[in-house]
Design a protein around this nucleic acid. Structure first.
Lengths: 223, 223
DNA sequence: AATAATTTTTAGCTTTGCCTAAAACTATTT
DNA sequence: AAATAGTTTTAGGCAAAGCTAAAAATTATT
C-alpha cells in the first residue's frame, strides 16, 4: 500500500463521499474537487494506474477495494482531528473542517493510533458523523432528519450536516447542540417549519431548511 | 505575506538552520535539503522572486527579513508539535521529528495559538530547544556541552542535540533526561570520556561523542 | 601564472496537476 | 432518425520540483 499524494488522497476521499462503491460521473467529481473536467480525466487515469479506481471512459469512475480502504482511513483521520480540535483546543464546530482537511494528510499510523487513544477512542466526531474504526469498519450514520418526527415526539439531536457557517451560527444562537433533547410541539402545514420545545419549557420555530440538516433519534421516555 | 509551498518552507527552514542571517552555499543547502545542486539553484531563484531570499550567483543565498520571519514561525510550529507529541500523546523524543516535519506545514494561525495555549505556552521543546515566541523572538539556546564542566561540578541537563535514534536510546538506557542533575566525578585524560554521578549515588561513564551532544547548566548548590 | 579540482549554473528532460479550446461521444428532443 | 444539447476526452500549455550531463565560474595546487 504505497503512500499517496495529497491530490490523490483528495480524489479518493471525494469518490468515497460521492459514490462509496458506486460509479461517479466526471462532472460530479470535478465539482466536488473544484477542478475542471479535463483535469479530472487526467487525475483518474493516474489513480487507475495505481489500482485505486476503475475507469470506464464516458461512463464514470469507481473506487477499487484498495481505494475504498484508503479513503476510509483518511476519513478516520479527518474526524479524529476534528474531534481533537473541538474537544481539546476549543474550536467551534464550524471552524474545524478546513484545518482537519490539512491534518488528515499527515502520514503516521502511530500518530493516528495515539490520537484516537488520547481522545478516548470516540465513536463520532463533533458533527455526529461516525469515526471509522482502525480495522476499516464504518459505523452507520445516526439519526433521521427532524422532518420525519410527528407532533408530540421527543428526540435527541445526534448529528448535523455541514451546511455552511451560517447554519452553524444559527444552531449556536438557538442553543442546539448534539445530545440535546427537544419535543415537537407543532408542525406548520404551510411550509413544514417545526416548533420545538426545550426540556426547560421554552420553545422556538425552525425552518425546514434548518431542520433538514439536523438529525435525531426518538427518545422513548420511560412512563 | 503569501502562503508558501511545502518545498519553499523546507528551503527557508534549512537556510535559517544553516545560516540564520548569513549566506549559505549551494552545496550545503543541497546536502541539507537532500536534493541536487541544480535543483537548489532553481529553487532559490523561485524564492528570490518572492523576496524570501537574496541570491548572489556563485556566492551563496541569504534569507531576507521576511524569509527569516517565516522560517521562525515554521520552527515555532515544529517545536510546538513535538511538544504535543511527547507531552500529550506519549511519543518518545526520538520519534517525533519526522511527524512534526509534516505537521509544521499545516496553515492556521489560530491552530498554532490554541495549540500553544493547550500546551501551557511551553518555553522549550522535548529536546530542550527554545520555542520561538509568537512575535518572532527566538530565546537563546540553553546550556553548554558537558565537556566544559570540570570534576566536582554539578549540572542540570537542559538540552540534547538530535544525533540519531541510537543516541536517544543510549540516553534512555542511562536514564538521562532533561531536568536531571549529575555531578562530574572524573574525566579521562585519555579520551575525554566523563564519569558522572547520579543524585542517588550511582555512577556511569559517558563517551565524549555522547557528552558532546548533551548540554547542561551548572547548578550552584546552596551550602 | 597556469593547470587541476571543485562548485555552481545552464540546458534539457520528467512527473504531477492544473488550465483552455477543440473534438468526440452520449443523451435528449423533436 | 436526425438534430441539438450536454458531457467527457483529447490536445497542447504552463508552473513547481525534481533529475542528469555539460558548460562556466571559482578555488586550490603546482
Amino acid at each position: 500500500m504505497k503512500t499517496l499524494t495529497e491530490s490523490e488522497e483528495n480524489y479518493i476521499k471525494a469518490l468515497y463521499y460521492l459514490g462509496d462503491r458506486d460509479a461517479v460521473s466526471n462532472g460530479d467529481l470535478a465539482t466536488r474537487i473544484g477542478a475542471k473536467g479535463s483535469s479530472v480525466t487526467q487525475a483518474v487515469k493516474r489513480l487507475a494506474l495505481k489500482s485505486l479506481v476503475e475507469v470506464v471512459p464516458y461512463r464514470g469512475v469507481r473506487l477499487t477495494e484498495d481505494g475504498r480502504t484508503q479513503a476510509i482511513h483518511i476519513l478516520r483521520k479527518h474526524r479524529l482531528w476534528e474531534t481533537f480540535l473541538v474537544e481539546k483546543l476549543g474550536f467551534g464546530w464550524e471552524e474545524v473542517h478546513p484545518i482537519a482537511e490539512q491534518l488528515e494528510h499527515v502520514q503516521s499510523p502511530e500518530l493516528v493510533r495515539r490520537l484516537a487513544a488520547f481522545l478516548g477512542s470516540p465513536e463520532s466526531d463533533p458533527h455526529g458523523d461516525p469515526i471509522p474504526h482502525e480495522n476499516g469498519h464504518v459505523p452507520p450514520k445516526q439519526g433521521r432528519p427532524l422532518s420525519v418526527f410527528e407532533a408530540g415526539q421527543e428526540f435527541e439531536v445526534v448529528r448535523v450536516e455541514d451546511a455552511g457557517s451560517e447554519f452553524f451560527s444559527q444552531l449556536d444562537s438557538l442553543q442546539i447542540a448534539l445530545g440535546n433533547t427537544y419535543t415537537v410541539k407543532s408542525i406548520s402545514a404551510f411550509d413544514k417549519s417545526i416548533e420545538l420545545e426545550r426540556s426547560e419549557g421554552s420553545s422556538f420555530w425552525l425552518s425546514s431548511s434548518m431542520s433538514n440538516n439536523i438529525y435525531a433519534n426518538p427518545t422513548y421516555k420511560q412512563s
